[in-house]
Design a protein around this nucleic acid. Structure first.
Length: 360
DNA sequence: GAAACGTGGTT
DNA sequence: TAACCAAGTTT
C-alpha cells in the first residue's frame, strides 16, 4: 500500500468536518445514547441499509431488548421476528451471537479495544471503528461507503472501492485526519456529509463544508468518483411454492436451513424447477409425500410472485393443495392456522405469497 | 479475492 | 425502467 501523496490542510479539513457536523447533524434515535450496546445495534442495522429504513426497526428493537442481557437471553426466533423485513438476516443472528460472547467473555461490557471488539461475530472493521469512536471516543477510522465517496472526491482517489483492500487506504488517510478531541464527531460528520451533501448523483457542492478542500470540485470531476466495479445482475431461479391445507384449515410452513440465504426464516414449501417446466402436479405430489408424508391434490397455479435479492431473482409459481387428513408437525415444519402465521419470521418474498393465501 | 447475503428507494 | 445505491461482514 503506497502512502498517498496529498497536499492538504489536514487540520483545517478536520475541524471543518467536525464543526459542520455539530451545526447540521440530524436528530436520529441512536444519537440520543452513547451506550455502546445501542451504538452497536444501530451500526449493524445501518450496514447496507438506509437511515430512514432503520429508524423504526431501531426503535422497536431497543424497546424490546433494552439491555445487552435482554438480547443475549432472548429466543433467536423472537430476534428474527423483530428483524423481519430489514434484510441480511445473518446480521441479526450474528448480533445476538456477539452479544452472548460479550456476556460470557467480557462480563456484559462491550470491549473498548480493537483486538477484542473485532473478534466479535458480526463486527468488522467499520462497526468496530464506529463503536470505538462514537461510544468510547477513540480516534479509530470508521470507513463506509459514504467515507470512501467523500474522500475519493476530495483527494481524487481512483482505486476501486469494491475491492476490500481499498478500505485500508482510506483508513490510513483517516489516521492522519481524525482529531483526538472529537473522533466521534469527525467520523459521523464525514458520513453525514456523504449522506446529505456529497451524494452519489447530485452532490451539493455549493453547500459543502469541505468544498474548498475538494480536488474533484476544483476539476468538476465529482461524478467520476468513486470508481466502483459494476455488479453482475441477479441470476434467475425458478420454484414451485406449495401451500398445503389440512382438514383443520391449517397450512404447512417450513423452517429454512440455519445457513445461507434467509437462514432460519420460515416459508411455504418450495420445489426447485426448470424455467419452462410445466405439468408439475406429479412432482409436487411426490415431493410432498417424501418430505411431509402427505397426499396432496394440487390446484391450479394461484399466483406468480417474483422477488429480487442482491444476487438472485426468484420466480415463484404458487400452488395451493388440499390434504384429506390431519397434518402432523415435523422437526423443521409446522401446521399452523392462518392467524398464527404472523408469529413466525418470514422473508418479504413469502410475505408476498402469504398475502394471496390470506385473501382466499 | 470474490461471491454470498435482503430490501427499499432513487434516477 | 433497469441499473444503481445504502452507516458491511462472512465465507
Amino acid at each position: 500500500m503506497n502512502k498517498i501523496e496529498y497536499s492538504l490542510d489536514t487540520r483545517q479539513l478536520s475541524s471543518d468536518i467536525v464543526q459542520w457536523f455539530h451545526d447540521n447533524k440530524r436528530d436520529l434515535p441512536w444519537r440520543q445514547s452513547e451506550d455502546p450496546y445501542h451504538i452497536w445495534i444501530s451500526e449493524v442495522m445501518l450496514q447496507q441499509t438506509q437511515v430512514d429504513t432503520v429508524i423504526p426497526y431501531y426503535n422497536t428493537f431497543v424497546s424490546r431488548f433494552p439491555t445487552l442481557n435482554d438480547l443475549a437471553y432472548a429466543d433467536e426466533e423472537t430476534v428474527l421476528k423483530t428483524w423481519e423485513g430489514l434484510g441480511y438476516y445473518s446480521r441479526a443472528r450474528n448480533l445476538q451471537k456477539g452479544v452472548r460472547e460479550v456476556v460470557e467473555t467480557y462480563g456484559s461490557k462491550v470491549p473498548d479495544n480493537k483486538k477484542d471488539i473485532l473478534s466479535i461475530k458480526g463486527i468488522g472493521p467499520y462497526t468496530a471503528g464506529a463503536v470505538l469512536s462514537i461510544a468510547y471516543h477513540q480516534p479509530e477510522p470508521a470507513v463506509d461507503g459514504n467515507v470512501m465517496r467523500v474522500l475519493s472526491r476530495v483527494l481524487l482517489i481512483d482505486d476501486d472501492i469494491a475491492k476490500a483492500r481499498t478500505r485500508l487506504l482510506f483508513e490510513n488517510i483517516i489516521y492522519d485526519l481524525i482529531p483526538e478531541t472529537d473522533p466521534s464527531g469527525f467520523n459521523q460528520g464525514l458520513m453525514e456529509i456523504g449522506a446529505l451533501v456529497c451524494k452519489p448523483k447530485q452532490p451539493k457542492c455549493d453547500v459543502c463544508p469541505i468544498a474548498a478542500h475538494c480536488l474533484a470540485n476544483e476539476e468538476g470531476a465529482q461524478l467520476e468518483y468513486p470508481v466502483k466495479k459494476k455488479k453482475t445482475p441477479p441470476k434467475p431461479l425458478y420454484f414451485a411454492v406449495v401451500v398445503p391445507q389440512d382438514q383443520h384449515q391449517r397450512v404447512l410452513i417450513q423452517k429454512r436451513p440455519d445457513k445461507g440465504l434467509l437462514a432460519n426464516l420460515w416459508e411455504f414449501p418450495m420445489i426447485s424447477v426448470e424455467p419452462e417446466q410445466d405439468n408439475l402436479d406429479g412432482i409436487i405430489e411426490c415431493e410432498m409425500k417424501n418430505r411431509y408424508n402427505i397426499i396432496v391434490k394440487p390446484k391450479d397455479i394461484e399466483t406468480t410472485v417474483t422477488h429480487i435479492f442482491s444476487h438472485i431473482k426468484w420466480h415463484l409459481n404458487v400452488y395451493t393443495a388440499d390434504i384429506s387428513t390431519v397434518g402432523e408437525d415435523g422437526e423443521t415444519y409446522r401446521w399452523v392456522k392462518e392467524a398464527a402465521l404472523d408469529s413466525f419470521p418470514f422473508p418479504v418474498s413469502h410475505q408476498k405469497v402469504m398475502k394471496y393465501i390470506k385473501a382466499n
